[in-house]
Lab assay of single mutants.
Amino acid sequence: MDVFMKGLSKAKEGVVAAAEKTKQGVAEAAGKTKEGVLYVGSKTKEGVVHGVATVAEKTKEQVTNVGGAVVTGVTAVAQKTVEGAGSIAAATGFVKKDQLGKNEEGAPQEGILEDMPVDPDNEAYEMPSEEGYQDYEPEA
Rank of each mutant, 00 (worst) to 15 (best):
M1S: 15
M1E: 00
M1G: 00
D2P: 08
D2N: 11
D2T: 02
V3W: 03
M5K: 04
K6C: 02
K6H: 04
K6G: 01
G7H: 04
L8K: 00
L8R: 01
L8H: 00
S9N: 09
K10N: 15
K10D: 01
K12I: 00
K12D: 00
E13V: 03
E13T: 13
V15S: 02
V16F: 14
V16R: 08
V16Q: 07
A17V: 03
A17C: 15
A18W: 15
A19Q: 07
A19S: 03
E20H: 15
E20Y: 06
K21L: 07
K21M: 03
T22L: 03
K23Y: 11
K23C: 01
K23R: 15
K23D: 01
Q24T: 14
Q24G: 06
G25Q: 15
V26I: 12
A27V: 07
A27S: 10
E28M: 09
A29K: 06
A30E: 00
A30D: 00
G31H: 10
G31L: 05
K32M: 02
T33E: 00
K34E: 04
K34N: 10
E35F: 07
G36W: 12
V37C: 01
V40D: 00
V40M: 06
G41C: 08
G41N: 07
G41T: 15
S42H: 05
S42N: 03
E46T: 15
V48K: 00
V48G: 02
V49C: 13
V52L: 00
A53P: 00
V55K: 03
V55P: 00
V55T: 02
E57G: 12
K58D: 15
K58G: 00
T59H: 00
T59Q: 00
E61A: 02
V63F: 15
N65W: 02
A69R: 14
A76T: 09
V77M: 13
V77P: 07
V77H: 09
V77Q: 11
A78E: 01
A78Y: 10
Q79C: 06
Q79Y: 11
Q79G: 03
K80Y: 15
T81I: 12
T81N: 02
V82D: 01
V82T: 15
E83L: 04
E83T: 13
G84K: 12
G84T: 11
G84I: 12
G86K: 09
A89F: 09
A89E: 03
A89G: 03
A90G: 06
A90L: 10
A91W: 09
A91D: 02
T92F: 08
T92S: 13
T92G: 06
F94Y: 14
V95T: 15
K96L: 08
Q99F: 11
G101Q: 14
G101Y: 00
K102Q: 01
N103R: 08
E105M: 13
E105V: 13
G106N: 07
Q109R: 11
E110L: 11
I112Q: 13
L113V: 04
P117V: 11
P117M: 08
V118D: 03
P120V: 05
D121G: 08
N122W: 03
E123K: 01
E126G: 08
E126H: 03
E126T: 06
P128W: 08
S129Y: 12
S129L: 10
S129W: 04
G132K: 13
G132L: 12
G132Y: 08
G132D: 04
Y133W: 12
Q134C: 06
D135M: 02
E137D: 08
E139L: 07
